[in-house]
């Protein structure tokens, strides 16, 4: 194992080469907000919350997909980054129809948490109030596109862990939405094994178990890491 030494927020750190800035920061207890990152599936660098400043690079880089390098000097929480993160979360709130009070994921939502973390007390941007639908065709689960932030965690977990690739993204820009199968009702997609990993992977209340109501979606975020650990290291206890 080779080791790289770097600085995060002025703190000297030695870490295993090949790790991402996000991994290393986590190990060192340095918080970096994320939304599209999910332990166990490939990172895509889409939500831009984990952007960090690296000395000598004039571009902000996502911590989740940027490998650590020797002598790197990383800043994770400058005023500029704080402002951009807050704007990012504000944009997300303005983009969908996120009404926390009656959402299944209320009190257990990563978007809600992100808003608190970045100190968002309101969004400066005009709400877009898109007319998005719901799909209740699956016997056990449902997807409410109003609450979707297009993090694609469901897409990746279904493809990479379950191997079913039920989910993907349709359309582009603001019109993007998560599709099941060949843009069919979820309940008609034969590939779906009803494993429920997408429910646990979803950071908001977009994908949920039918029958759950306000603030009842507790989710089991650790299940995924457990499953991967179990498969890779044959450790089947939790």
């Amino acid at each position: 194992m080779s080791v790289k030494t770097l600085k995060i927020n002025g703190q000297d750190i030695a870490a295993e080469a090949g790790k991402s800035i996000l991994q290393v920061a986590k190990e060192e207890g340095i918080p970096i907000p994320t939304l599209c990152h999910l332990e166990g599936v490939t990172d895509v660098g889409a939500c831009r919350l984990c952007l960090v400043e690296i000395k000598g690079i004039n571009k902000l880089l996502p911590a989740c997909v940027t490998e650590i390098g020797e002598g790197m000097e990383v800043e994770t929480n400058t005023p500029r980054l704080q402002e951009y993160r807050r704007m990012t979360v504000e944009l997300l709130f303005a983009e969908g129809n996120h009404m926390c009070s009656f959402c299944v994921a209320n009190n257990n939502c990563e978007l809600q948490d992100a808003a608190i973390e970045v100190g968002m007390d309101h969004t400066r941007f005009d709400y877009r109030f898109p007319d998005r639908g719901m799909d209740l065709s699956h016997p056990e689960f449902a997807i409410d596109h109003n609450r979707c932030i297009l993090c694609t965690r469901c897409v990746r977990v279904c493809d990479e862990i379950e191997g079913a690739h039920v989910w993907d993204v349709g359309q582009r820009g603001e019109q993007c939405y998560i599709i099941s199968g060949l843009d069919q009702p979820w309940g008609e997609v034969d590939a779906c094994t009803s494993c429920g990993k997408c429910v646990d992977a979803c950071p908001t209340g977009a994908i949920f178990r039918q029958g759950t109501t306000t603030a009842e979606k507790l989710g089991d975020r650790a299940k995924l890491s457990f499953l991967i650990n179990a498969r890779e290291k044959q450790e089947w206890t939790r």
Partner: peptide
């Protein structure tokens, strides 16, 4: 701005989707 309806328009704004 007192409460979610004042801050986000919240539930009354669900009519906007129509």
């Amino acid at each position: 701005s007192f409460g979610d309806c004042a801050v986000t328009a919240n539930i009354p704004a669900m009519r906007n989707m129509l």
